[in-house]
Each structure stands twice: as structure tokens, then as C-alpha cells.
Design a protein around this nucleic acid. Structure first.
Lengths: 150, 150
DNA sequence: CCGTATCCCTGACGATACTG
DNA sequence: CAGTATCGTCAGGGATACGG
């Protein structure tokens, strides 16, 4: 079971997830939520415009198996980020919707997206340059045994 | 090797990490960086106040083995988030420092921390309430076979 | 001091099939 | 339609030991 968002980090954890980790004065303050808990980010985006049914979510998340999607949704429901409403009809209908708490995540998410729009290109450039430094040509065996990298 | 931050997500990915994913108009825009790539977040915080040596980083990150710390640092160096400077002394000395690109992450990170300070308590409350609903007492076997959860 | 080299283990997923 | 059950994989990363 994916623990979705927070989760005090099972075993070896930087901190046991205390409140002062979010005090700007605390030097060790850490990221509380695994905002990108693999699918949570995308699910929130899918629900941004209103409630969605399970099968509706499966369209943009086609690469997520129903099992994993279901687990993710339940974990998010557990954390109070979304609600699950089942209508006793036939065929059954279930709708997922963002809570206020879940919606409050849109702010930090937008901040991160804004960072991506402005800086991701530079990061990818740096990565490409780094890889090219290690593999100058396709004829190179790559990874000289010891030197390189000042 | 931990791929640190971005990484187009190896196999089944929601999107191949294109630029328009960061367009606020794109409904599928996703989180580009795995901001919390396990240790990257904490490393950035450790470097926030200035360059640090490898052994200095090991103090606040005592639970990270040198192997993993080394891998994380190299991945971040590859992505242009930090620099690695080795001084040819004896004993050897190496200093890691944030680049401008790495420092630009502090903005989104602070936004996330601010979210944590304001809302994390509510998330934890919701989680606790959910778990208690499933395990009302220590005498309960938990997980009734089918009902519960409207 | 600053890392690498090995080994191994776990838990998050993915594939596929099947129910209420 | 809305999931669950079962099985398998595989990469992240922890433990330990060693090298420049």
C-alpha cells in the first residue's frame, strides 16, 4: 500500500516529522508531504475542476492500474484530501472530490510548477552536459577508470 | 543510483515530461521535480547557509549511509543544483555548495513548508480518525470483512 | 578524510484475472 | 461500473567492508 502523502517515513527517517520542522527558523525543517506521491499530484489536478468518477480518472491516468489508483485514492481519502461518495445506484456510481484541505495544496503545487516553467530547462541542460562529459562519443567506452571530474 | 530530482519517470509515466506540463492552462500539468528525492530536500537545507564538507553533511544526515549520500550529491551535481569542489590537500577536503539554480528551489520549498505549518495537523488528525474508524478498540480484529465505509 | 564496492532486502508498483 | 485478489518484478537504498 502506498502511503500516499506524508507518512513519517517508515524506517530511517531524517526526522520523526514534528511540528517545528516547519518552523522557518529550524535549520532541519524538511518536506512534510510527499507531494508527488507518484500519482497524488496528478489526481489532485484531475479533481481540480470538480468531482470525478473512478472511470473518468482512469482516462488521463491510463497508465495507472486500477489497483494502484484505488490505493492512491483511499490513502488520499484517509488523509482528508479527497472525499469518496458512493451512490447506491445500478450500475454503481462513485465520485471523488477535493476537500478544502486538498484544495489548499494547489498553492504549493502552483509554486512548484512555476519553478518548473522557469528553471527546468536549465536543469535538463546541466544533466545533458554532465552525461556528455562522461560519454563524449558513442565510440567511447564511457567512464574512464579514474580521472575526469575536477 | 537515485535519479535525484526530475527524471522523466523510467517506465510508466503520466507524461513524458514536456514543457507544456508546466503551463497553468494544461490540465495534466504535473510535478516536474521529485523535490523530496528522499534526501535532496534536506541536503539543500544543509547547504542553505553556505558550503559544507562531506563530513559536515553526515552529521545532520547521520541516518544516511555514505554511499547513498554520495549518490545523492552526485545526482544533484549532475542536475546543476550544487557544485562539488575538491581541494588537493592532505587530508583531502571537498566542499559542496548550492548553485543559483539550487537556491531557486528554496522558494517552492518554503511554500510547501508554509503549507505544512498551516495544514499538516489537520491531515494527521484525518488520518488518525480514519485509522480509529477501522480499529475501534485493541480487542477488535480490525477490517470487518465487508461493510463499513459508507 | 572522502568516498566506493558488494550484498541483500523491502516495498512500491505493474500485469492479469476475477467479483459485487 | 468500480473496484479486489494474486503474483511477480525491480530499483532504491540500508549494512558492512574496503580503497585512494
Amino acid at each position: 500500500m502506498t502511503d500516499s502523502l506524508t507518512e513519517p517515513l517508515p524506517g530511517p527517517s531524517p526526522q520523526p516529522l514534528t511540528a517545528d520542522m516547519f518552523d522557518p527558523e529550524c535549520p532541519n525543517r524538511a518536506m512534510p508531504i510527499r507531494l508527488e506521491a507518484k500519482w497524488a499530484w496528478l489526481i489532485i489536478r484531475c479533481l481540480e475542476g470538480g468531482p470525478r468518477r473512478f472511470s473518468e480518472l482512469r482516462v488521463p491516468l491510463a497508465r495507472v492500474t486500477p489497483k494502484v489508483l484505488s490505493e492512491s485514492l483511499r490513502a488520499m481519502e484517509r488523509d482528508g484530501l479527497i472525499t469518496r461518495t458512493a451512490y447506491p445506484e445500478n450500475p454503481p456510481r462513485v465520485e471523488y472530490a477535493l476537500t478544502d484541505l486538498g484544495r489548499s495544496l494547489l498553492g504549493p503545487m502552483d509554486a512548484a510548477c512555476e519553478w518548473g516553467r522557469r528553471h527546468l530547462g536549465r536543469l535538463l541542460d546541466a544533466r545533458e552536459a554532465y552525461e556528455r562529459r562522461r560519454a563524449p562519443g558513442p565510440s567511447e567506452p564511457a567512464r574512464p577508470s579514474s580521472p575526469a571530474r575536477p
